[in-house]
Amino acid sequence: MCCWLGLAQATALTFTLAPNEKQCFYQFNNKPDSNIGYYFAVQAGGSFDINYTIKGPDQVLIVVEEKQRQGDYAFVAAKTGEYEFCFDNEMSTFAEKVVDFEIKVEDEDEASQMKANLPNAPTENTAVAGMQLSVNKIERTLNLLEHSLNYYKTRNNRNQSTVKSTENRIFWFSIFDLGLMMVMGAFQVAVVKFFFQGSRKQLV
C-alpha cells in the first residue's frame, strides 16, 4: 500500500498503480460548501477498471465505487479540511494500471462576489473585473476541452488495446490451426500407410 500527498487548488497527474497496490491523494479545502470536482480515467492495464473511495476530513466515506473505468464528477465539500481520494488495484494479480487523475476546487463565492461588484458606470475596476470574468469563462471552456481530449485519449488507448488483443488472438489461433492441420495430415498419412502395409502382407 502506498500513499502520496498532494495539496493544491488544481492537481492533475498521471500515475501507475501496480497490482495489489493502493495510492491516496489529498486535497485541502479551506472554505465550507465548496465544489470539488475530480476526473479520472484508466488509460492502460487489464480491463481498464479500478476501485476508488473518497473520504471527508472526519474519515466518513463520501463515494465508494468498484471497477470503474473513468469518472467526471463533482460534490459539495461541506466541511473544511483534508479530503482523501484513494485508488486501489487490489483486484488485479498481474496487471498494472495507468491512471489520469485531476482534482479541482471551484470557488463560486469569488465569482459571485466579482459579479456583484460590477457597477453600472464603466470604471477601471469594472474593466478589470470584466476581464477576470472573461478569463474565468475561457478557463472553464478550456477545462471542458481538456476533459473531451482526455475522453478521446482514453477511448483511443482502449481501442488500441482491443486491436492488439485481437491481433494476438488471431496470431495464436492461426498457429494452433496450422499445428492442428499438420497433426491431422500426419495422422492421415500414417493411416494410409498402415492400410497399404496391411494390403501388401495379405498379397504375400
Rank of each mutant, 00 (worst) to 15 (best):
F171V: 06
Q188A: 06
A129N: 15
V135N: 11
N117V: 00
Q132M: 13
E139C: 12
G179F: 02
P119E: 10
T162F: 11
R158C: 02
L180D: 07
I170K: 01
G185Y: 09
R158K: 14
P122N: 13
N156P: 00
V128A: 14
Y151E: 03
E139L: 07
G130I: 04
S165R: 04
N136S: 07
L118W: 10
N143D: 15
K137F: 08
R140L: 05
M184Y: 06
R158D: 01
N157H: 15
M184G: 10
E139G: 07
I175E: 05
L118M: 13
N143K: 07
S174L: 10
N156H: 07
F176C: 05
I138E: 01
P119V: 11
S174H: 02
V192E: 14
F196T: 12
K164M: 12
R158A: 14
S174E: 01
E124Y: 12
V191N: 04
V189C: 07
E146C: 08
E124W: 03
R140D: 12
N159G: 00
N159E: 10
N168G: 04
V189Y: 15
Y152R: 05
F194E: 06
P122D: 14
F173V: 04
N157P: 00
L145P: 01
K193H: 03
R158V: 10
R169A: 12
P122T: 08
A190P: 00
H147Y: 04
L178P: 00
L149E: 15
A190L: 01
F195K: 13
R158T: 06
F176E: 02
N136G: 02
T154E: 14
K137A: 14
F196K: 15
A129T: 12
T141W: 00
R140V: 04
A190W: 02
S134V: 05
N168W: 03
V163Q: 14
T162H: 10
E146Y: 09
L178Y: 02
N117R: 09
L180M: 12
N125T: 08
P122M: 10
N157V: 01
F176I: 01
A127D: 13
S174G: 06
E139K: 15
V183R: 06
E167K: 10
A186S: 14
T126M: 14
N143H: 09
R155T: 05
L133W: 05
T123W: 04
L145D: 05
N168H: 08
I170G: 00
L142E: 08
F173T: 15
T123Y: 12
F171M: 13
I175M: 04
I175V: 08
F173M: 15
G185S: 13
M181H: 06
P122H: 04
V135K: 14
L145T: 02
N120M: 07
L144D: 08
S134H: 01
F176V: 00
M184E: 11
L149D: 12
N159C: 09
V189N: 05
G130C: 13
I175S: 05
T162C: 04
V163W: 04
Q132D: 13
K193I: 01
P122V: 11
D177H: 03
A121G: 01
S165I: 01
Y151R: 09
Y151T: 09
T166H: 08
M181D: 06
S165Y: 00
K164W: 07
N159H: 05
K137G: 04
F195H: 13
V189E: 02
A127T: 14
S174F: 00
